[in-house]
Design a protein around this nucleic acid. Sequence first.
DNA 1: GAAGTTACGTTATAATATAACATTATGTCG
DNA 2: CGACATAATGTTATATTATAACGTAACTTC
Lengths: 165, 165
Amino acid sequence: MSRENKSSNIAFRKHDHRRCQRQLLSAARQVCETRKLRLTSRRRQVLEILLASHQPLGAYDILAELNRAADAERIAPPIVYRALEFLLVEGLIHRIESRNAFISCVHPGHQCAAQFLICRDCEQVAEIENGDSGLLAQADNIGFAVDHAVVEITGVCAQCQKHGE
Amino acid sequence: MSRENKSSNIAFRKHDHRRCQRQLLSAARQVCETRKLRLTSRRRQVLEILLASHQPLGAYDILAELNRAADAERIAPPIVYRALEFLLVEGLIHRIESRNAFISCVHPGHQCAAQFLICRDCEQVAEIENGDSGLLAQADNIGFAVDHAVVEITGVCAQCQKHGE
DNA sequence: GAAGTTACGTTATAATATAACATTATGTCG
DNA sequence: CGACATAATGTTATATTATAACGTAACTTC
Ligand SMILES: [Zn+2]
Ligand SMILES: [Zn+2]
Ligand SMILES: [Zn+2]
Ligand SMILES: [Zn+2]
C-alpha cells in the first residue's frame, strides 16, 4: 500500500504504448465477447481514438477525430455520445467529471472504482487503483449506500515539478 | 473517526435551518471582512439563494431565481457566473462537478477539502469533512503535488433506503 | 423472410459556460 | 473636491457540452 503501484501511474511513465494499445483493445474485445455485447466498428473506432493516448478527450474532440477519419460523411454528436455511453457502462472508459472529458480505462473489465490524478501542467491523467476505503467506510458508517465514486485530484505531477514551471 | 460526525450530514438531518442560514451568511460576512473583500449585494444575493437550501443548484437555476426576484431587469449568465466564481474562490460555496451545480459550504472559511455524498433519490447532498488521507498520501507517494481534490460519491441516503424505493 | 431488437444516422435544440467590451461604483491621492 | 485607477457589474454575442425525437439500417430469432 505504501509501495508505488505499477498500474497506478502508467500515464506518467515511459512504456511501449503501441503494445499497451493493442493489449487494451484486445481486452475490450474479450470483455464484450464474454458479456455477449457488440463492439461495433463505431464503438471500436471511438475506443481506439481514446486508446491513442492516455490523455482525456472531450466528446467534440473525438467527434472531430471521427470526422477527420471519415471522408465525406458528416458525423454528428449523438453518434459519439452513444458510443461513449456504451464504453462507459462497460467500464472500458471513464468520464473525468471535472474536465467534461473521457479517458480509456487502464484495466478494462475490472469494474474498478477509478480515481484520477490530473496534472494541470502536462494534462496527463493517471488512473490509480482504489487506494483509500476510509472514504467509502465513512459513507457506509452513516448508512449511505454507495453507487459510484468520483475521485479526481488535480495538481502537478512529479515530472512537471522537476521541469521548473 | 468511526463515530458519526456532527457536521458530516447536516443536509440529511432535521435542524433549525432558518438559524443555520443566518449563521452561514454571517460567517460569510466575517470571512470577507477579514480578507478585505467585498460581499456585494449581487454576491450576497447569489449566496443567499444557495443558502436557502442544502441542495445544489445549477447556474441557470440561480439565474432564474435572480430574475424572479428582480422586477424588470433581465439578468444575464455572466453575472451569475462571476458571483459564483468569487464565492468559489473564497470557499463560501462548492461546485459539484458531477452535477454541474453549486452548493453552499457548511463551514465557510475552513479551506476544507470538501467531499460529498449525493443521494440520487432525494437529491440531497451532504458535505463531509476530509475523512480519508490515504488518498492524498498515495498521491504524495508518487510525487504528485495536490492542488484540489474532487470527491463526489453518489448513492442512496439512509432515509431514502428506508422509504422503500 | 417476417418480426423484434439493437445500433446507427439526422435534425434540431437544450443546457452549461465564457469572450469581449461598455458602464457604473468604489477607492486613492493630490 | 476632482481626476485617476481599479474593481464590480451589465450587455451582447457566441462557444461548448449534451440530449430529444424520430427515421433507417443491421443484426437476431424463429
Ligand atoms: Zn499506454
Ligand atoms: Zn505533468
Ligand atoms: Zn441548514
Ligand atoms: Zn436521499
